[in-house]
Design a binder for these strands. Structure first.
Lengths: 341, 341
DNA sequence: CTGAAAGCGCTTACAG
DNA sequence: CTGAAAGCGCTTACAG
C-alpha cells in the first residue's frame, strides 16, 4: 500500500487549504485561463503561504517536459569547454531549464552509457560535443523518439541534428597566411585529435594556404597531448627544422611554447608560432601568443538557443547549421612585436 | 483519462514479454534476492532484448532517491570552479549519480531561486560553494527535510553541513613568510571578496605573519575584480610604495601582473608578488608566478564523497569538516629566480 | 468556470 | 519465490 510520511507539501495540501479541487490548483499553476481571477489569487496566496513547489517527477510522469537539458562533453576542466558549458547553463536557466552535465573524459565507452542515463532521466534535449562515432545509432534513436539534439564545435556524420560550429578552415587560413606574410616558407602544422572534423578543417585550411602560396606542407600529427613535446623537439633538432609552427589547438600551443622554452629555442626569433584557440592568459605568457579566437560562449549560447527553439516549436526537424566567425588575435609569438619587452 | 502513445518500453512490456508480473521484473531490476536464478536471467534477457530502461521519474515519485546531486557555484567559467566541478561530476558518475549544475553568476537573487528549483527537481543532495548568507534559512529547511549538504571552499555560518576547505591561513602565512625571507618589509595585501571566510582567513594569515615579523600590515581591499587595477596602480605611484604584493586569489594575481606590466614596473625586481591560487599557466607567464596551490580537484572529489557517504548511510547528521593542505609553488615572481631568462 | 475519474511507470506492503 | 492491489503527485480528457 506504499504509504510513507511526506515532508513536502503537495498539490492536495494547497487544494484543501483553499477548499477547491486539485484540478483548480493545477490550472492556476499552469496559467490556464479558465479560472476566475478571484480563485486564482486565492490559490496563489495559499501556494505562497504553504511554500508549495510542484513535484517535477510527477509532472514528467504525466508526460510533461522535464525542462532539463543534457550537456555531454569531453572534459569540464578544459577552458574552452567550461566556458561553453557556462554559457549553456546560463542560457538554459534564463529560459527555466536546468542543465545536467555529463563529462565523459575521453572514455569512449562511458559516453554511450551517459546517453542511456540521459534517456532514463527524461532529458528534454541534448547539447553535445561529439567525440565518438559509435554514438550515432543511439542518438538517431533518441532523435526519432522526439528528442532534439544540437552538436557544438564538431560534428559526427550520419546524424541529422542542429550544428553550431566555427570557421575552422578560414581561421586556419588566416593564421597560416599571417605566418607566410612574415616571410616563413617552412611552416609545420602540429597537433592531435585530427579525427575530429573541427581539427580536420583546420588542417585543410593549413594545406590550402600553403599550396596557394606554392609552399610544401609538413604535418606532425600525434596521438595524444603528451606526445606533442617529444615529437616536436625531435623534429626541431633534426635537419631542416621548420621556422614556424601552426598549432592546432590551445593545448598544443601551450605544449609547444613550453617545450621550446625549456630547450631555449627563442620564440619568435628562431621559431614563430600561431595557434588555433585563444585563451584568457595568452597575452600574459612569456611570449604572448598570436592565436585564432573562437567565440566559446557564443557557441554555447547559440547551441542552447537552437535547442530551446526546437523544444518550444516542437519541430526539431529543422536541423540548422550555424557557423560562427573566428578572428586572428595578433600578439608576439608570430614575430609581430618581437622585441617589445 | 490521459492516454497518450508511449515511445519507450515500460516495465509492463518486459513483464508481458516474460509472462510474469511487473513485481517480478521490479525485483530483478533492484537486485532483490527472492527471485529464482532462472527467472532472473529470463527477465534480464528480456530487458536487454527490449532495450528497457527504468523511468527515473516514476521511481522518484515512489520515493526512491533521484540519484542526482545539485552543484551550486558562482561561475563555471572560472578555472578553479570548473576543475572542482569536473571532479564532482566524475566522482558522482562513478557512483551512479548524475550532476545538475547551477551557476548563479554572482547574482544574489538567483541563488535562492536555484535552491527552489533543486527542491522541485528532487535532488538527493547538494554540494555548494556558498556566496550568500540569505540562503541559510532555505538550506536549513532542506537539510531538516533530509537533504545532505556539503559546502566547498568556503562556509556560511548558521548552517550545520559538511565542509571541505583548504588551509587558507597556513597558506597565506607561507606566502607572506616567503616574501619576508626575501627581505621585504613593506608587503601589501590586495584582493576582493573579503566577506568570504576563505579570503578572510587568508587576510588573517597575512596579518599574523606580518605581526610576528614586527611589520606593519597594509591592506588594499577592493569591491570587484575590475577595481584591482586602478587602485593598485594608484597605490604604486603614491609615495612609500610597497616592495611586495600578496594577492588574495588568482584573478587578483593576474590583474596585478597585467597592470604592473602595462606600466613597466619590473616584477620581481621592483615589486615582488606571491599569490593565493595556483593555475595551470602560471609557469608560462611572462613572469612565472609564485603561488599557493589549492587542490581544486581533491576539493571536489572529497566533497562529493562526503555527500555520497551520507546519502548511503542515511546519516547526514555527521557534518564533518575536512581541511586539505595547501603548498607554496615557488617560481619567479617572488624574486627567487629573478634573472632566470 | 470547476470537479470526479483515470492513469503516467514504478515500488511498498501484504498475501500466498 | 511470486503476484494483486494501492498509491506516489500530478494532468488529460471528459462532464457539468
Amino acid at each position: 500500500m506504499g504509504r510513507r510520511p511526506r515532508a513536502t507539501t503537495t498539490i492536495s495540501d494547497v487544494a484543501r487549504e483553499c477548499g477547491v479541487s486539485t484540478m483548480t490548483v493545477s490550472r492556476v499553476i499552469n496559467g490556464n485561463k479558465s479560472v476566475s481571477a478571484e480563485m486564482a489569487s486565492r490559490v496563489h496566496a495559499a501556494i505562497a503561504r504553504l511554500n508549495y513547489q510542484p513535484n517535477e517527477a510527477a509532472r514528467i510522469l504525466r508526460g510533461q517536459s522535464s525542462r532539463t537539458i543534457g550537456l555531454l562533453l569531453p572534459n569540464l576542466a578544459d577552458t574552452f569547454f567550461s566556458q561553453c558549458a557556462h554559457a549553456v547553463q546560463q542560457r538554459a536557466a534564463q529560459n527555466g531549464y536546468t542543465t545536467m552535465i555529463f563529462a565523459c573524459e575521453g572514455d569512449r565507452e562511458s559516453e554511450a552509457e551517459e546517453l542511456t542515463i540521459m534517456r532514463s532521466r527524461n532529458i528534454a534535449g541534448i547539447v553535445l560535443v561529439p567525440s565518438n562515432r559509435k554514438l550515432v545509432p543511439q542518438l538517431r534513436q533518441m532523435r526519432s523518439a522526439g528528442l532534439p539534439i544540437v552538436m557544438v564545435d564538431r560534428t559526427i556524420s550520419g546524424l541529422e541534428a542542429g550544428q553550431v560550429l566555427v570557421e575552422n578552415e578560414e581561421g586556419a587560413i588566416m593564421a597560416v597566411n599571417h605566418l607566410i606574410g612574415h616571410g616563413h616558407r617552412h611552416i609545420l602544422c602540429t597537433g592531435y585529435d585530427s579525427e575530429y572534423d573541427s581539427v580536420g578543417k583546420r588542417i585543410q585550411g593549413y594545406r590550402r594556404a600553403m599550396e596557394d602560396a606554392g609552399l610544401e606542407p609538413e604535418l606532425l600529427i600525434v596521438d595524444r597531448p603528451e606526445a606533442v613535446r617529444p615529437h616536436l623537439l625531435a623534429r626541431m633538432h633534426a635537419p631542416n627544422a621548420p621556422t614556424a609552427l601552426f598549432t592546432l589547438n590551445n593545448v598544443t600551443s601551450i605544449e609547444a611554447l613550453r617545450s621550446l622554452q625549456s630547450e631555449a629555442f627563442p620564440v619568435p626569433d628562431q621559431v614563430a608560432i600561431v595557434g588555433f584557440d585563444d585563451f584568457e592568459l595568452a597575452p600574459l605568457l612569456a611570449v604572448p601568443l598570436t592565436a585564432v579566437r573562437q567565440p566559446a560562449s557564443e557557441l554555447g549560447e547559440c547551441a542552447t538557443q537552437m535547442l530551446l527553439d526546437s523544444l518550444s516549436e516542437g519541430s526539431h526537424s529543422s536541423s540548422k547549421t550555424v557557423i560562427l566567425p573566428t578572428r586572428l588575435i595578433i600578439r608576439n609569438s608570430c614575430g609581430c612585436i618581437s622585441h617589445g619587452r
